[in-house]
Amino acid sequence: MLHRRIQQFFLVYFLGLLSLLLVKYLLNLSDYVIPGPVEIWQTCKSVFARYVFNVLDTLWIAVVGHIISIILAFMVGILGRHNSWIGSLIKATAYSIQAYPIVAVAPIIFILLGDGLITRLLIAVMICYFPLLLSVIGILSEPVDSIEHFYVSTKRMNWRLQVRIRAYENINKLTTVIAGSATMAVVGTIIAEFIAADAGIGYSIRTALYQSDLSKILTALFLIGIGTSLYLTGLEWVGNVIQRKCQI
């Protein structure tokens, strides 16, 4: 699984790099705009170790943010699965906030909370929480009549059993949604770092942008891709283990 994902990433990344170099040589662009392969390689060697730590810094915030989002999404999703007023209110609120770009709100969060860890974490959580919440509500509010009928008829149904039945029956969807939202968490963290933080790979990209150093940006993108691939592969592995256990 990891092997395939890394292979896919390498293919996409090097195709992109090749296209960039092709543009450079076709349009005869200077090394200042698009550096040559030797310069890219040398920059990569010089910043690699530092950028690896920056990516790890970003990744752990993304992972923690993702876990918080999952927990929050399930807690609120369990409340919002009902067709009652509270369910409708939660759904309507989630849809409204989801429609609003969190990135636009990010500067307010930076002004209020500063550019530390909490701000990066909060933005990561906000970016992946709402899409996750809507998916969880959608899955948990869909009745599984063929199983639930017996428990409803015999008055044995309670909220825990209902959630368990619906989550179990949709375990494939849930694991896919959770794995999908991991990318959002990584993107959210990088955006937060890019806007105003003082650490992480997003911050390094911003610095490289101010220096107009495309080699550093390309190195950062390479490491972000590798890091995200590793995280997604880990999540998929956990998802597969859960699915296999459920199917025994």
Binding site: S146, I147, F150, Y151, Q247
Partner: peptide, 20 residues
């Protein structure tokens, strides 16, 4: 009772019957 009903899949049918 109808013939389209299912048991939850997380346990054997004996355990599911005993639990209800």
């Amino acid at each position: 009772a109808h013939n389209m009903e299912r048991f939850p899949g997380w346990a054997g049918i004996g355990d599911m019957m005993a639990s209800t």
